[in-house]
C-alpha cells in the first residue's frame, strides 16, 4: 500500500515538474496572441493570466464574432499565422475550422479532463470556458419596472412599436444565433422575427451597436446578451438584463488553439489556464457563468443550446437566406 502511494507521489511530482518545466518553456516564448470577441471579460482574463505568468504577455485582438472568424480564416488561407488562441462566441464556426485542420488537438491539456463532457469537443479541437446568456436589454430610464417585458413573444405586440432593437441576422453572429433559437422555438418561429420587423424593430450591425442604442435611449429594449449589458452597466448606462420567461438561448465563448500557432507552447498554456478552475474563477468573479457541472438545460429548463456539430456551411447559408427573406420581405434573399 505504502509502495503504491509512494509511487503515486513520485509520479505526481514528476508530472508536476514536467508541467512546471513546460510552463517555464512556454514563458520563454514570452507572448501569446489571442483573437477574441469584443466584450470586457477578455481583457480581464488576459490581465489575470499575465498576473499569474508575469513573463508572458497576452496580445489581445478584439473583433466581433463574424469579423474575427473571417480574419482567422483569411490568415489561414493566406498562410499568415498571427493568432495563437482563437476565442469567439460564434460556436457554430468551430467544427468547420476543425475540419479544415486549423485547430490543434487540446485533449492533452492538464485541465481538459476537468471540463464536463458537454462543454468540450469530443475530438479535442475546442472547449467552452464562458456561458453567454441572451436576454432582453431594457433602458431603465425609459421603461419603468412595471412595464418591463416578460417574454420574447410580447415584443411583437403594438405597445413595443418602434422600440425594439435586434442584431441583423445578415451580419451572422448573435443575430443569426437568435434566429436559430426563434426557428427552433415552438411558440415563436421565424414569423416572430417578421412580426418584430413589421412592428418597427431596428436592425443593428452587431451586439455592441445594439447595446449602445438601448443604453443611449435610441431604443427602449433590445435582444441582447448578458456580457454586453453588464459592460454597459459598469460604464454607468441605465440598462438592465431581463431574462425572458419563454426561452433562454445560451451561447458559449470557446477556446481553440491554432494548429500552426506561432507560439504553440504559450498558446497551450494559456488555453489550459482558460479552462482551469483558476480561469473559471475570473469568469465568475466578473459576474458571469463558467461551464462547470451539470448541463445548462438541467439548471434552466428553458435553456436552448445550438447543436453546432450538426451544421455545415451550405446549411448555414441556406438558413441565413431563409431568415433574411422572412425578416426583410420577399426581397430579402441573399
Amino acid at each position: 500500500m505504502k509502495l503504491v502511494s509512494m509511487r503515486a507521489a513520485v509520479l505526481r511530482a514528476l508530472l508536476l515538474s514536467v508541467l512546471a518545466a513546460a510552463a517555464a518553456r512556454a514563458d520563454d516564448e514570452g507572448v501569446v496572441v489571442w483573437y477574441a470577441g469584443t466584450h470586457a471579460l477578455h481583457p480581464a482574463m488576459a490581465a489575470a493570466f499575465m498576473a499569474a505568468h508575469p513573463k508572458t504577455r497576452v496580445e489581445l485582438v478584439q473583433l466581433g464574432g463574424p469579423a474575427l472568424t473571417a480574419r482567422f480564416t483569411a490568415d489561414q488561407e493566406r498562410g499568415v499565422q498571427a493568432a495563437d488562441v482563437f476565442s469567439s462566441g460564434l460556436t457554430e464556426c468551430y467544427p468547420g475550422l476543425r475540419r479544415r485542420g486549423w485547430l490543434a488537438d487540446l485533449r492533452g491539456l492538464p485541465h481538459w479532463g476537468g471540463l464536463p463532457a458537454w462543454a468540450k469537443d469530443p475530438r479535442g479541437a475546442y472547449a467552452f470556458f464562458h456561458v453567454i446568456r441572451h436576454c432582453i436589454a431594457v433602458n431603465t430610464d425609459l421603461v419603468p419596472p412595471q412595464r418591463r417585458p416578460r417574454s420574447y413573444a410580447e415584443l411583437s405586440e403594438p405597445r413595443w412599436k418602434n422600440q425594439v432593437a435586434l442584431v441583423d441576422p445578415d451580419t451572422g453572429g448573435t443575430g443569426l444565433y437568435l434566429a436559430r433559437f426563434a426557428a427552433a422555438h415552438r411558440g415563436l418561429g421565424l414569423g416572430w422575427l417578421a412580426r418584430l420587423r413589421a412592428n418597427g424593430a431596428r436592425l443593428f450591425f452587431q451586439s455592441g451597436q445594439l447595446t449602445e442604442a438601448v443604453a443611449s435611449g435610441r431604443r427602449a429594449v433590445g435582444l441582447d446578451r448578458d456580457v454586453e449589458v453588464a459592460e454597459a452597466r459598469r460604464a454607468g448606462a441605465p440598462i438592465e438584463c431581463v431574462f425572458a420567461s419563454d426561452g433562454l438561448p445560451l451561447q458559449f465563448t470557446v477556446v481553440a488553439v491554432n494548429s500552426r500557432a506561432p507560439h504553440p507552447k504559450t498558446a497551450r498554456l494559456f488555453a489550459d489556464w482558460l479552462i482551469s478552475a483558476e480561469g473559471s474563477k475570473v469568469v465568475t468573479q466578473a459576474g458571469f457563468l463558467a461551464p462547470r457541472g451539470r448541463r445548462p438545460q438541467a439548471i434552466w429548463p428553458k435553456a436552448w443550446v445550438l447543436d453546432v456539430e450538426s451544421l455545415d456551411d451550405a446549411e448555414t447559408k441556406a438558413f441565413a437566406g431563409r431568415v433574411s427573406r422572412e425578416l426583410k420581405g420577399p426581397s430579402g434573399g441573399r
Partner: peptide, 8 residues
C-alpha cells in the same frame, strides 16, 4: 457583408 461577415 458577403465577403467579411455572415456566411462568406
Amino acid at each position: 457583408s458577403t465577403s467579411l461577415v455572415g456566411p462568406v
